[in-house]
Design a protein around this nucleic acid. Structure first.
Lengths: 207, 207, 207, 207
DNA sequence: TATGAATGAGTCTTCATTCAT
DNA sequence: TATGAATGAAGACTCATTCAT
């Protein structure tokens, strides 16, 4: 029983990377169960056999992919904050509105890119404990990052952790509506401004 | 081509029901793909064969289960509102708080019962159009119900559709946290009261 | 293990007959393996269960049907001869041509009615010895009948058995062409007159 | 949706061939429906899985087998003619008798080899249009070949297409009698000479 | 290392037959 | 007798994984 090998040569590493990238992509796109190992091999332009030298099984490809892309796929907010906190010094009410606006825009963009990935990811997280834990740790990282961001901007919230989660949920919810669902009678712009209004209220009138 | 039979006898109907109930349960619990037809047969205490007299295929069991349990599984809020709008005449600020509290409590309870179902359902909804439509129509029904409820209580909102969706999202998010996730450092009670505060703000100070 | 019952009551006999008739019909039409027992039950307007009180298994229905319809389905020539030898007294050359013409016309008609039955029957005959024997005995009966017919008409052939088979084959072949195949470039009328010419030659110029 | 693979390596090609050969053999021998995929795999000494890498489904094995063996199985006459028309220059009455004799001998031999295949093939041809078409095109090829053969030998027939079909039918009929049936009271030698006499008459005294 | 042909356990589904009513 | 619901063995087919080269 050959242990999965961690490749050293540059070429081999690139190959392993390609398997993860393409495999994870396919699984997110079409679903874990509808993606076969030969499919992955073909997409990554490698042979079926080599996959089992780098990975114990199909599941491991998914996990590897998730670990690698977790932050950007699950929590695009992270990148937003990363790029934000460098440029901003102090924020006032108008700044908050601008930041929120930018945050939402980028999050929507990111959702649009990852398309079908989210539901698939959520279902895997629920079906598989290890995968669930990856989610949790990513979420934790993001929560911390938001906290840091707020701190840097001298925004002191009561119950920051809880508020951050709520804010995160509000933005996610808006994104889902915009990217996936489109319910009857809903106006995206209206929903967006309502969401921003709520968040602003939470941050500013913190009482 | 054997058409699926619709059973008449009481016993047969009960059997069909058991297949739907147990099958849907297993699929929600362990995942659609990890639930085999023999598994379902065993759980429902019937033979494999009978399943295919009542259902075209495995997918139909899931859809049937979804249709049947959609409202209670997906949108437990519905039941809450059903029982609320009969008893209430006019609401003031305190009433709203009480209603919200009750809404949340019942929604959490319901989520607890359905356990792992939600993510599985969402992933199916995303993978299968027909299933997705069942979701949408249930959501629509719930939105309307909330609207009616507000109307009856003389609560006039600007942008009611959007606000209702946001409220629905907030409650769902809280439930997920409570029932499934439990993030590090989070306090449920605090999150709950923050959510209620936000909703109250949305409903009362509608400006 | 309940032995198959031979029904006495008029009603029951009619039911059994209907099963044979409709079952055999379906099997000939759609193929033995593509005809299910429930299909037969439905077509005969009886319950599935009752079939197994009259017949050991599906195969027995086929055999019963074959026995019953063998002569008319397999060898429509029989009926032709039955109706011919009554009316004819002596034959001359012209009579032979007329008889042949009538024989062929009726045989074609019969094939048209039985449509797809023939190939199915042949394949069953080949797959199942007992069924094959039914064929053989029917063929024997027909050969004898043709012999009697010739005798009655004072047509004495050398090697009558062999000639009769050849004649039978020629007519069958023509019928297949007319009813089922229709090869490119073939003219039915021409083929027909060629076949008649050959047979006439066999019968008249018997040297 | 795994596309069927066309093997390149010599070994793989041999394996695919073995599946076709053995599978087709079994299907002809025991019937299409009585031959299971595992049966075929066992007979070809391969795994079940590999079958579905080379063939879309069971039916395709049959069709492939038919295509491959069609000419020799269905129309052994072809080979006979192929080997004949090279050697012959001009024919007289005696030559025709010799050629016919050889034709019949070889056709009987071929039928003996293919054994039970014919009825099975005919039933498949009737149940499946694509299979039927393979038959037809093979028949057409044979008809043309016979025509060419006659032409080369300066035998000009009136209504050649129809006559060729009749000849073909006569030979087939004789072969069936010899190889499969053996009716009571029939003498093969006698039948054979009668058939030859008829054909000779058709070809020579073409009037 | 890499290939891709090969494996075979496991899946969904069908249907001849039985059996409780 | 008659029903038709129920059975479960067996079939076609898939796919994660292995292995000869």
């Amino acid at each position: 029983m050959p242990e999965t090998r961690i490749p050293k040569s540059e070429k081999a590493v690139a190959k392993r990377d390609r398997i993860i990238e393409k495999g994870f992509e396919l699984m997110c796109e079409n679903g874990y169960y509808k993606t076969s190992t030969p499919d992955i091999a073909k997409a990554a332009d490698v042979s079926t056999g080599i996959i089992y030298q780098y990975f114990k099984d199909k599941r491991e490809i998914f996990i590897e992919g998730l670990k690698r892309f977790a932050d950007s796929v699950l929590f695009p907010m992270m990148d937003v904050l990363d790029s934000s906190d460098a440029t901003m010094a102090k924020v006032d009410l108008n700044d908050i509105e601008r930041i929120l606006d930018r945050l939402i825009t980028l999050t929507v963009q990111s959702h649009r890119l990852t398309q079908k990935a989210h539901e698939e990811l959520e279902m895997m997280a629920h079906a598989d404990e290890e995968i669930g834990n990856i989610f949790k740790s990513s979420e934790l990282a993001m929560t911390k990052k938001i906290g840091t961001f707020l701190e840097k901007n001298n925004i002191m919230l009561e119950n920051p952790i809880e508020k951050i989660h709520i804010i995160y949920g509000l933005v996610e919810n808006y994104c889902h509506e915009t990217v996936y669902h489109h319910h009857e009678g809903m106006n995206n712009e209206v929903m967006r401004s309502e969401v921003i209004k709520i968040i602003k209220n939470m941050v500013v009138c913190d009482n």
